[in-house]
Amino acid sequence: MSTLARTPALAERLGITDGRGRAMWVLGLCLAYFATLLLAAAFMGDAGLSTDFPNKKLAPCFEFPFGTDWLGRDMLVRTVKGLCRSLGIGLLAATVSSVVSAALGTLSATMGKRTDAVVTTLIDLVMATPHLVLLILVSFACGGGATGVIIAVAVSHWTRLARIIRAEILQLKQAEFVMVSRKLGRSPWWIARRHMLPHIAPQFTIGLILLFPHAILHSAGLTFLGFGLSPHNPSIGILLSESMRHISTGYWWLAILPGLSLLVTVKLFDVLGNSLRVITDPKTSQE
C-alpha cells in the first residue's frame, strides 16, 4: 500500500476525481440534454410532420438521421416532439403527485393514529392494484384521450413519495436533535420549518425527479395500448405502436431509434435523481 499514483492534473482541475465532482458533472450533462431537447423541439417547426411522399421509408441518412416513415414524415422531428410531449405529461403528473403526496404524507405523520391508518390503507390500496390495470381503468373512466392519460398518470404515482415523506417525518419526530430542540423551547412550527423542512426538501425533490421516468413510460405505455393520445399528435407511444406494423418488413429504424431515445431520456432522469442524491446527502457529499 505505497503512495497511490497521483491522478492527472486535468482530471483534478475538472473535479472529476471524487464522487461529488463527478455527480456535479453528470448533473450538468443531464440538464444540458433536457435543455437541448426542449430547444430543438421549439426551433424545429412543423415542416417535418407533414407528409412528403417522395421521401417515404428512407433509412437513416445524413439528411434524416432517424429516417422517415411510410408517409415521408421526418422521424427525428416526430421523436423530439414526442419526447417533449412526454416530458410535459411527466411534469404535470409529477406536479399533481407532489402536491398529493406532500399533503397526505404530512397528514399521515402528524395528525395522529387514526388519520395515519386511513392514509396508509389508501396508499396500500393504490399500490396493491396492478399499476397498468389502474392506469387503464382511470384513463377509461375519464373518457380516454390526452386528458384520460394525464389524469390516470397523475393520480397513480403519488403513493411511493407519500410513503417516503411519511417515514421521513416520523423518523425526524423521534430524532434526538428534534427532541432536544423541543426541550430548548422551540415551537412545533419552528421545528418543522428549521429542522424538518431542510431534511425533507431534498428527499422530496429527488423523489419527484425519479417520478418522471415512471410517468413518461406509463403515458407511452397507455398510448401504445391505444387508450391514450390521438394519433395526430406525435408521441412516443403512438410512434412505437405504429412501428409495430412495419418492423417485420425491415423498417427497423421506426421502432429502434424512437425506442432508444425514450430509454435514454428515462435513464437520464434516473441518473439526474441519483446525482442529486449524492450531492445533497451529507454522508456522500464529502466523497
Binding site: 436533535f177 432536544v180 430542540s181 426541550k183 430548548l184 423551547g185 422551540r186 415551537s187 431542510p198 451529507p282
Partner: peptide, 30 residues
C-alpha cells in the same frame, strides 16, 4: 413549549445536533 428547566445530555452528541447546521446555530438554539 418553553426552555425546560430539566435538560438531558445524551451519550452520542452527534445525534443531538442537526447535521445540516453549523454548530454556531445549534448552540444558539439553546
Amino acid at each position: 413549549g418553553v426552555f425546560s428547566p430539566v435538560q438531558l445530555i445524551f451519550q452520542h452528541p452527534e445525534l443531538t445536533m442537526n447535521p445540516r447546521w453549523k454548530l454556531r446555530d445549534s448552540v444558539a438554539e439553546g
